[in-house]
Design a protein around this nucleic acid. Structure first.
Lengths: 199, 199
DNA sequence: CATTCAGCATGACGATCGTCATAATGAAGT
DNA sequence: ACTTCATTATGACGATCGTCATGCTGAATG
């Protein structure tokens, strides 16, 4: 390992730590709900060094959104290629609508940062490709009019998670997720999710 | 018109102006994206007087969310009672997914403030009733397993608007709205996703 | 051992935030 | 006219925001 290679590696590693820290905090409190200092503290650094890695908080928000969504898109694409279509669709849907994941901060950024991203033009542009990737992955698992169904299915999934996170009643939350899964997946319901204790 | 009645009327009127101003600005920039002074300026007042009408910004956010959602819920209920079920469903869905409305700041707060509300416990509690009202209105327009379909349909509508506002490509935005409408409304066109038979 | 240099820490700036104490305003009651 | 009272305006507070200029540190170079 060459010396300078290690230096740039450390730099990239730190950058990545900032990105993942921002990913957690932005999803939990919203982009406008956390400051640069909170992000840097979560990354184990102090606020001043932030601008050695990103030109502005807006740029960070755009890159975080893009990174999180591209992760999801590539995961979906991978699933859609390694299993047969019906099983892939079920895996994607059940993973996306898993109550534990929805309750946590690890759920899809579309549902936690959607409006935040929509208001920021740079973030909007950054996620365009990933959004199409998710649609393609879904479409490749769907029968018939793939594109129409992919658009509608993604809408249902995103809406269900938004509403599940919004509802104050855990039963209602669960109902949104279950109804969405039943609406997207073909009627042969496999084992329904076990009873889960409230968050 | 008694004198004191007019006084309290003026007070209530000012309060309402603050509420509607906050409704516009919160939906456009997010709750954390506007300050109390911006809200008061939009209402034609100065920032200091805010605390004569609301105990805190959090309380304002909760009341704005509740008010906007209850407006929508009562509108849906009214429609569901004045027309036959199928026509009512179509009116609600087409109104909700109207591209002009989606592009404006007048669209449903679930889609613009959803994550913001989900993070604020007081706001979450405030909207519980209205959310159930919207589900009831939808269910009364739906055939068969009403509750399941209402949950899934609302999810699809909310998700479609979120995604339409997110997409940078106007064609893609339009596609989300169109696909959602086609998926919810009965078989005017082709098979709907809700009643789609397994392949 | 001295120098260099990249990466991070420190500290500070103007601006804006939520909140409140207080003054100005103007109509209502006596 | 004088007082009362409700409503809004003014101005300020501490805190936090995004941003940046500067100082420190520790390893690579010669």
């Amino acid at each position: 390992m060459s010396p300078m290679a290690e230096a740039t590696h450390r730099r990239a590693e730190t950058r990545q730590r900032i990105l993942t820290a921002a990913g957690h905090l932005f999803r939990k409190h919203g982009v406008d709900g956390v400051g640069v200092d909170a992000v840097m503290k979560e990354a184990g650094l102090t606020h001043g060094g932030f601008y050695l890695h990103f030109p502005s908080k807006e740029a960070l928000a755009a890159e975080v959104s893009q990174s999180l969504l591209e992760n999801a898109a590539s995961k979906w694409l991978e699933i859609s290629r390694t299993v047969d279509r019906e099983a892939a669709l079920e895996r994607i849907v059940r993973y996306y609508l898993d109550p534990d994941r929805v309750a946590s901060a690890h759920c899809c950024p579309l549902t936690t940062l959607g409006p935040d991203v929509a208001r920021r033009s740079t973030s909007r542009e950054a996620i365009g490709g990933a959004l199409r990737g998710m649609l393609d992955a879904l479409a490749s698992c769907l029968p018939g009019r793939k594109r129409q169904l992919a658009l509608a299915s993604l809408s249902t999934m995103v809406g269900a998670v938004v509403l599940a996170r919004l509802a104050d009643d855990p039963d209602l939350s669960q109902s949104f997720l279950q109804a969405a899964a039943d609406s997207i997946l073909p009627v042969n319901r496999s084992a329904s999710a076990a009873e889960r204790p409230p968050v």
